[in-house]
Design a binder for these strands. Structure first.
Lengths: 190, 190
DNA sequence: TTGGTTTGCTAACAAGCGTTAGTTAGTGTC
DNA sequence: GACACTAACTAACGCTTGTTAGCAAACCAA
């Protein structure tokens, strides 16, 4: 199917541009230029600018859940579980850094009702990590602390770490484990 | 001086809007509406939209340096120094959360040559923290680790922590110390 | 009272925005 | 060879953008 190929091409370039310049500062003509076609031609493949953003944001939400949720249901001990979840989270970001940046920064330009849906999803995702921390505390594996603050701090640290640094796939895996371990070991150990 | 008062009012509202909607998605008419005047009237006080952004970004850069640089020159031991620097950094963010969000996210919409100047400043600021970590490692106060990774992780964690949560001035100070301690204790202790 | 400064207004500009309409050339299918 | 589909085009739409010009009322200093 060539249709899908072209649509995916659009999405790929859009991810790049939305990340670099932001959603609002990226015009359909910019995007079209990048693909070597006219702006109007884009509408043979997509139905609106916002549709592209929706695809990116909710697509990434799915990826994050698909990677992390299974880990939270596994039978690992709290510390290993949290670290695995974190590594899964980091891997999704590393493997898709443009889309992740858009997911993290540009979602506010979604219109309703998508905006509300997105916020809800985001909350649910954060909750996964909060629960992992709470579990660890309850089972006396982690020191006693505000689970929400810690979970948020951890996610914040991970999200920004990949913001500015290019992630070459060679050192990516090492770095991921290094960061996850650093955070878990440091912030959680009792 | 009433001129300054009005100009500051503009900057204040601009900070709010730039933070909420982003620089590009905020129009001069939006900003004027918020102040109860016409868009054209803004130009009696400022000379361009970008000038407002410049004022915010470089103003905050100054604030951050003014707060943190003295600490780095003090005679505290490495751990106390890093923690104090972090608290200073967090205090600037907490006391000026709108402007900080703009400083952190919207600087890329600066035009040249300001963009390059800004990036340079940012590097210099990050370097302050990297140096603090390096000092601690050299003096054997911190465990051996990649100073750049740790410094970046710490800053990332702080920057995002205040992103989504309203900082009431009452619990602000407690939270700041709590977070700074958490990060320093956790990530740095040998 | 005069004259300047401050702060607002209305009207308008050219450029850029997302998007639609209508068309056309190429491609694969019966 | 006829037909539908794909993917591009040109032209244009109504609207919004940042910004400028010219003007008027209010205030303050001399």
């Amino acid at each position: 199917m060539k249709t899908l190929a072209r649509k995916d091409q659009i999405r790929l370039k859009a991810q790049m541009l939305f990340r670099e310049r932001g959603y609002s500062a990226t015009s359909m003509r910019d995007l079209a230029d990048e693909l070597g076609i006219e702006a109007a031609s884009l509408y043979n493949h997509i139905s609106s600018k916002e549709e592209i953003l929706q695809g990116i944001c909710f697509g990434m939400a799915e990826s994050f859940f698909a990677a992390v949720e299974p880990v939270t249901l596994s039978a690992l001990d709290p510390k290993a579980k949290l670290q695995s979840a974190l590594e899964a989270h980091l891997r999704v970001i590393a493997e898709n850094s443009d889309a992740s940046a858009v997911f993290l920064h540009e979602w506010r330009h979604l219109g309703e009702p998508f905006l509300s849906d997105f916020k809800l999803m985001r909350r649910r995702y954060e909750k996964l990590f909060v629960t992992l921390v709470e579990e660890g505390i309850a089972r006396d594996s982690f020191k006693k602390m505000d689970a929400r603050v810690v979970a948020r701090t951890i996610l914040s640290a991970t999200n920004w770490t990949f913001e500015s640094q290019k992630t070459s796939k060679s050192d990516g895996d090492a770095t991921i484990q290094q960061i996850a371990e650093l955070l878990v070991e440091g912030l959680i150990r009792r």
